[in-house]
Each structure stands twice: as C-alpha cells, then as structure tokens.
Design a protein around this nucleic acid. Structure first.
Lengths: 208, 208, 208, 208
DNA sequence: TATGAATGAGGGTTCATTCAT
DNA sequence: TATGAATGAACCCTCATTCAT
C-alpha cells in the first residue's frame, strides 16, 4: 500500500472518534448549542477535518444517532432469541443487560438527545421511533405475552405495561445526562433497577 | 382616563402571554434553537417589546421556568395537607392530580425543557432540583413512610421507590412533547396512569 | 404615521443604495471575489443590514442585474417608437443614446458582469439573454429592415450585421470596467463611437 | 533507466495539462470560483500535485495567461512580416488567421478571462495590455497606415479604427465562453467574420 | 514525484440585542 | 409603551495550502 499503516489506521478511526466527541457534546448541550469547533478539539482535530468525514453538522448528528442505536438493538434481539428461562427472569435480564451494555455507556445519552431534538429533527425522530422504540416495545410485548400465557403475569393492558416497564430505566439514563452532571442528586443504578424489577415483577405477578 | 381598560389589561397580561409563547417554543425546539422573533410574533408583539419585560433571552428562560413550577408545588403541598385517607389512595390522588393540573397542561413540557437544558443552565437546574424535585421527593417520601408505618406498603429502598413512582408520569409528559408531536406513537394517559398505579400499588403491597 | 419621515425615507432608499454599492463591487471584482462586508461598508451600513433587504448574496446579485437592465430597455423601445427620420439617423441615435443613458453610467458595467458570471449563473444568463439581448437584437433588426426597404442599406446577413453593430459599443463599456481602471489604455468614447458609426454607415450604404 | 519513457513524457506534459485544465475552469467560472481540486481532477492528478508545479493558485493563473498569449503573438508577427499583398487582404488574413489559430481554440477564452479578472490582478492586466494589446494594436496600426498610404483606405481616426476592427472578433470569442455555453444564441463564426470584414473594408474604402 | 489527510483563515449567514422614533 | 431597523458577534462551512508518508 502507498499509505502507511498508522495513517490508515488513523483514518479508519477518525469517524468513530469524531462521533464519540460529538455525542458527548450533543448530549450535554443539545444540537444547536454544540459548536463543531469544540467537537473537533475534543477529538483532537481541527474544525475543517470534521468535514472530511461528515458533510454537515446535521449529517454528523444523524450519523451519531444511527451508529448509537445499533448496539442496543443487537443486544436485545440476541437476548430474546437465546433466552430459555421463564418470563420473569427474561424481563430481568433484558433490563439489566440494557443497562450494562447501553444505558451505562455513553450511548445511554441518546434517549435524552432524541427527546431534546425530536422537535428539530422530525425525520430522525421518526427513524428512531421505528428502528428503536417500535422494536423494543415489540420485544417486551413478546415477553409479556409469554409470561401471561405461562400464568406468570396478570393480564393487564399490554401497551401501558410496556411503557411502565420502560420508563424507569429510561429516566435513569436521562437523569444521568441532565441533572446528575449538575450535581443534583445521586444515582445508585443497581439499587434503582433492582427496586424497579422488584416492584414490577411483584406488581405483575398473579395474586392467589 | 387616557388609557382604556382593555389596554391596561393587555399590558398587565403581556408578561404572561410572552412567557406562554416562550414556553411553547422552548419546549418544542430547545433554548438555543428558539428565535425570540418567533416568540414575539406568537405573542402578537414585536421583537423589541420582549425586552421591555425581560432583560435577555436567558432571563426570559429563567422566568418561564420559575413561573412554570409554582402551580405544581402548590398543588402537591395542598393535597398532602388536606388528604385524610390511606396511603394508597393518597398516592393515587397525587399522581392523578399532578396529571390533571400540571402534566396535561402546557406546564407539562417543563420537565422535558429542564432535562434538555440542564447542561446549559446549571444554576437553573440546581434551582429546579431544589425547588421542585427535592420537594416532590420529600412529599412522596412522607406518603411512603405513612404507608409503611400503616402496614400498607412493604419496606423497600425508599429513594429508589420514589424514582420508580416518578418515572412513568414523567415519561408520559416528556413523550408528549418529544416524539408524540412528530407522529410517533399515541398516548392514552388515563389507561397508562391507571396501569402504572395498578402495578405500583400491587407491587408495593405486602404479600401474605 | 408612526415612523418618522427621515427613517421612512432611509428605508426606502436602502435597497437602491445597496444595489449600487453591490454593482460597483460585482463589476470590479466579480461575484465570488466580492465580500458582502465591503458592499455594506460602501453603502454605509453593517453586514447584517444587507440581509434585511436581500436574502442572500445570490439574491442580491440577481436584484442588481434585474434592476440594472430595466432602464436600457425602456430607452431603446422609447427611441424606436418615437423616431421619425431615416434608418441611418435612427441607428446613430440608438447607439449614442445607449451610451449616454446606459453605457457611460454605472449600469454600463452590467454587460461585463454578465459575461464574467454567465457560467456561474446560467439562469440569470438566460434571463439576461431573453430580456435584454433578444430585445435589442430585435430592435436593431427592425431598424436594419427599415433601412434596406428604404434603399438606404445594402442587404447583408441580418444577424451578423446586428452583432457587428453591437460589438464596438459593448467593448467600449466592457473595456471601461476591465483594463481602463488598471491604467491600461485610454478611451475617447465620442471619437470612438463616431468612428464606429462612420465606418458602419459607410459600410452599410449602397454603392452606386 | 528506472523511469519509463511514458512516465517521463507524462512528467514533461504535466504543467501543460494542468494549465489546460486550469484555463478551462478559469474561463468558465472565473478565478475565485474555480476550485483547484476540480482543476487537478480534470487533469487527472491530485490536489497536492498542482503545488509541485505551481506555487499557488495565483501563480497558476499567471502561468495560464502567459502561456496562453504567446501563440497569438507569434501568429500575428509572422503574418505581417510575410505578407506581400495589399492592406485589404492583409487585414482579412489577420482576422481570419487569428480566429483559426486562437479565437476558435481554447485560448480564445483568455480575453474573457482577462476582462473578468483585470480588477483582481492589475499587474496581470498590465502585463496583458503591454504584451498583447499594445502589440496587436501596433500591428493593426501598421496595416492601416499601409492602406492609407496606398490610397486603399480613407484616413480616419487611427486608434478608434483599431478598436472598431478588434471589437467584433473579440466579442465573438467572448460570447463563445459566456452566453453561448448557457444555450443563449448561436454563433456562425464564418458568416459573422465575413460580414464584419465586408462592412469594415467597405467602410474603410475610399468613395469616388 | 505523488498523494490526500489535515489545517485554519476567510466569508456568508443568523439572530440576540440596542435604540431612535 | 411599542416598534422594527440596525448592529455585530458568533458560527457553519469552504477551500487554498501544507506536509507526512
């Protein structure tokens, strides 16, 4: 090859580095308040370099979202297809795995970002809804269905249940990128998720 | 009199009208992406008039937040002091009243706004945390305490429980101002809150 | 009126002032090399003010062209409809009037500008062609026709003749805004146009 | 040898290829609007390679002009020194040869380029004026002088005559690189130049 | 010699803010 | 009090230029 390895490797890594820096800033300040120069600086390059990889601020934003949602999806689908146990443990595993693989990583900021910017990027919101939310809901729907059929869970309004299952983990991630960095409140994700699951599974379970 | 009543009334109402318009825009697009001209236009005045009532965009923002959180606080405190029934029904009443009086009104957008802008306005976030979140949590803490003491509720980790109680109503409001306006998903607040309460109260309740 | 006269008058005059300054710069340096800040400064306003009257640099350019071609057209049409004499004197009058009313004024730079920027603004070039060139040619065609029918002029290839009539006055104007300002050559428009007409009319005339 | 002939030839030809590509773009879009990357691409090299041959965009521009004007000069001088016939036929030959050897080739775009960029490159304009225009005018002056002395031409203002002789061929070339490529108007150079010469020589000739 | 990734100055454009009326 | 024309700082984006390979 005519270009050196280190150079090649750098070129390969740049987009990911830039997207990571961009995610940081977008999540912390929002799209409009993020200065591309800050993103570039954080990634260790100059402003112009960004444009070698992303055509515009908006395209960078979209790339950040797209790249950010893939891991979550794969995790979920994989888990569901592999799991063998009962619905209770599956639900538990889903929530805890999501936290471990997504919520607790930088990608955990994407829900906050999408919420904040949905009004400015309707088509990205649409995309996020279809690719992420619809799939996650469908995944949870199948789990609930399985639990109800197995007599583990009470039959409750399915869609509402899904929302109630999702809300606490989502709020955990959102909080992490909004008030917590400002020194407001502390989080104990372990305890929090366990309490959520405890309450949830107890709440779902059939009373004699 | 040289100034008519209607004009007087108008002048009196201006700040509130401007804040309402500003809230609309801030919630929908965020602080940075909101143009003061749009706010002024929606309020039916010119751009310059805004500055007769608010010193800057930032001060307008802070005023919007401050005015927006007062009703919620009053509601909660009133309810707690007046309520006579058991903890279950008090919890239920709190959630449903909050939705009726705050969540379902334009003020319901404030949580989304605070979440989105906390990174850009740390001192507002701090203020919001102390004035709203701390109080609401303390309110819920008292309710839970009462329920546990009365043997209605199981003793669970208090702080986590509070988070879990808050998350679904909050998400309901946030959703309402993020993805739902983009045509993503539909909401049935009644069913949703009832399912939440059903699951929650069942989850909290002591098993024999 | 609520706004003062002087302010109103200023507002009214601004677009013309800005276009005059812009014409100056566009003609001298070309579209791309013209800095809007320079245009604004020359017009005595700030950069931002330009955008109160013209949506973009390109729209300013188009406005400059459009406003710039109107006077020339009116002149020509008026002259033709009013003239009573023979074709020779009409031709002479057309050329000299064009110089007096257009070529020697700042508008005389527009042909150079159009020539330089045609490749960058095809649709403006099209517009200029249809609105200016086609009309001028048609005007000259009628004059030549009249002269031939009256036996004043020899029958020559009409379209080529028109080009040959137009070229010297055009070059006179173009020169004025290209090499002459750089200190290259001097112009004596009177003599030049007279020589042109002398040669032309002699060249057109029928030999016995 | 380590370098093949074809590579050697390539290296030798590079500057000319680059200048040809640059001429194309400069003529079509102007200096400022021309991107060096486009020039390099059209010449089949990378952007950086340009800088191996030309120190800057401006130096490339100057080289293009300098290389572009040499052939025209040689043509003219050669023709004058060789010609034996009368002034009429010499004038005719000059115009037609210029068109054949310069005007109709890519070099025909240089007049348009010089006109457009004179304001941005005064020293290039100066150079062009001295090296090209002054010489061409002096050439034509000698021809006219010869014709007047031989009784072929009427005595008219010499400098104006030169301008009138030059204008139509120049406009022919300029048109070719401005409005014609935008689909405005068609050119028939043969007819056009013949009409020009016909009118011109008739106009110059002495009446009995 | 040739490449193309990287740079950063420059300029178009937006919009919060001011102020004369 | 209300207006809206004017301002200019800020920021996105382009592209001539550099340089490590």
């Amino acid at each position: 090859m005519s270009t050196s390895d280190s150079r090649q490797r750098r070129k390969q890594a740049r987009p990911a580095e830039l997207m990571a820096a961009a995610l940081d800033h977008f999540v912390q300040r929002g799209f409009a308040a993020t200065r591309l120069e800050d993103v570039a600086t954080q990634a260790g390059v100059s402003k112009g370099t960004l444009y070698l990889y992303f055509g515009s601020k908006e395209m960078l934003f979209k790339a950040v979202i797209q790249q950010g949602i893939l891991p979550a999806l794969e995790e979920g689908e994989t888990l569901l297809s592999q799991h063998q146990g009962d619905a209770r443990s599956l639900l538990q595993a889903l929530v805890l795995r999501w936290w471990a693989m997504v919520g607790s990583t930088p990608l955990g900021g994407i829900p906050k970002l999408m919420i904040a910017e949905a009004g400015n990027f309707p088509e990205v919101a649409q995309y996020y809804y279809e690719q992420v939310i619809v799939r996650i809901r469908s995944l949870l729907r199948r789990v609930l269905q399985r639990g109800i059929e197995a007599g583990e869970f009470r039959p409750l309004d399915m869609e509402s249940c899904i929302d109630v299952i999702l809300a606490p983990p989502l709020m955990l991630a959102i909080w992490r990128y909004s008030l917590v960095p400002q020194g407001c409140g502390k989080q104990d994700p372990e305890t929090y998720l366990n309490t959520h699951l405890e309450l949830l599974l107890n709440g779902l379970s059939v009373r004699e």
